[in-house]
Nucleic acid binder design. Sequence first.
DNA 1: TGTGCGTCAGAACGGGTGTTCCGATCTGGG
DNA 2: CCCAGATCGGAACACCCGTTCTGACGCACA
Lengths: 213, 213
Amino acid sequence: MRGKLSVKQEKILTFMRQFLDENAYPPSIRDIQHGCGISSTSVVDYNLKALENMGLIRRDREVSRAIEVLGHRRNSNGIVSVPVVGQIAAGAPIDVPESGASVPDTSETIEVSERLLFGRDNVFALRVKGTSMIDALINDGDIVVFEPTNHADNGDMVAAWLKREGETTLKKYYLEGDRVRLQPMNTTMAPIYSSADNVQVQGRVLYVTRSMA
Amino acid sequence: MRGKLSVKQEKILTFMRQFLDENAYPPSIRDIQHGCGISSTSVVDYNLKALENMGLIRRDREVSRAIEVLGHRRNSNGIVSVPVVGQIAAGAPIDVPESGASVPDTSETIEVSERLLFGRDNVFALRVKGTSMIDALINDGDIVVFEPTNHADNGDMVAAWLKREGETTLKKYYLEGDRVRLQPMNTTMAPIYSSADNVQVQGRVLYVTRSMA
DNA sequence: TGTGCGTCAGAACGGGTGTTCCGATCTGGG
DNA sequence: CCCAGATCGGAACACCCGTTCTGACGCACA
């Protein structure tokens, strides 16, 4: 039941997206029926239930045209929903989502204009814990958007994974010989030195947001 | 026929906008009837025809829920497009958009999740010029979202209009007796003192964003 | 070969929905 | 006062629409 989409389900989904773009209101079951060349409304209902179980659409029962296609990007505004996949500080390890992996609906997201990401793909976000980057204008509670990368140039602000310590921290990255200096931007804190093979760069900072309300 | 909106028509329009934001599909005539406390569907139909003649909505006849409210941005998942209406620094005056005023489509916008604005309406954004708020973690080039208000409590970060000087600045606000202290968050800069009647608060900071790419 | 399961076709039911008609009420002007 | 037009209330009609029921078909599996 929770496997791949059938041809018919894919067709229904595509039709609903197209219908929404053209009409500003969702299609009825019979619209879908005729638009996809399906012979019976019960078949549409059957497949819609399957799509609903897979979490791809949401329906208000007994209400006409009350189908909502989840994750449908409006073509008018290039907005990317970036998943906030965890926290970053001096301790809590995080998982970086793999390319193409689906993100559970339960996770928090932050919306960012596509144009601010300069074409980066598979970006993710972390909530900052602690004040170690206060001098880089990043405060406790800020949400930081990363592009996934394993490479960093000196001075880049990165999420760095310390393999032996099992920690991920937000620091400035400097490669000095065969060791790495992870520099906090807080004059009261000392840098972390580690061997280069113990440091795994997970992402580079693209964007910072802070709520002041 | 083409004059002002009646109370009922205004109510219907407001209800439809709210319904669209909440439900992702348009309301039926009877939804409008009950939502606005109208006694008959024919009255709704009558007023919808009037709104259609005025060009405020568009309808597909004979199709249920086929009402499109023109000029209403379908924010797919509670996203508000906040207009970036100018810059704020130590000089350039800005115009704060009046409530309900339309913002030209040509202006830059920044997209923010509705939930981060805590119900504030008519918010606007400014691009920060200069480093006067560097110690408050706001840098040159950051975009700051404001809620429009004429009131500020001590310590609030506000956009303040200096009437005689014809300037708008981003500072922390402190009312001290009959004068106002506008405190930059930069240890190298001195505060501005001005009489209270010369200072007009234009908005309070809600949200800060910075692009690092 | 039979059984269960996923999928589909057709039809019908009941309530939802846009529309229309008739008449009442209100309002402004002659 | 009287009339015309705008607005409204109530009801009915015909179609739209989501749902459900019955049965059929194909396919994997024992």
